[in-house]
């Protein structure tokens, strides 16, 4: 995950980004980009609160879907990479990370 560094920045949803239910689909919509989210991705999205770090989110996914934490971590990182690539998530180094 290229955006992260050793100080473990936490993912944050920018103020101008929103989640929208549109005709049965979930869309993350930003200023320029929109991305359709799967139900699992929506769950991950809902864990992004600007204070919970990647490990904390992966722990929540592991618990919710009864999968091992390593697998959850891979899924969370993959989604966050994709979201940040579309400026739908940013990384906040100043936040005090919470590990879930």
């Amino acid at each position: 995950m290229t955006e992260q560094n050793d100080s473990a920045p936490v993912p944050r949803i920018p103020l101008n980004v929103r989640l929208r239910k549109h005709r049965g689909r979930h869309l993350a919509i930003g200023y320029e980009h929109a991305l359709e989210l799967s139900p699992t991705a929506v769950f991950i999205w809902n864990q992004i609160d600007g204070t919970t770090d990647v490990d904390g989110i992966a722990q929540a996914v592991s618990t919710e879907y009864a999968i091992d934490v390593e697998t959850a971590l891979e899924d969370v990182r993959a989604l966050l990479d994709e979201l940040s690539g579309h400026q739908l998530v940013v990384w906040d180094s100043s936040a005090q990370p919470r590990h879930g």
Partner: peptide, 17 residues
């Protein structure tokens, strides 16, 4: 402003269009 936008975002995610 940040709190209010956050609230708007939370409500918005519960609406379906």
């Amino acid at each position: 402003v940040e709190d209010t936008i956050g609230l708007c975002r939370k409500i918005s995610s519960e609406l379906e269009v």
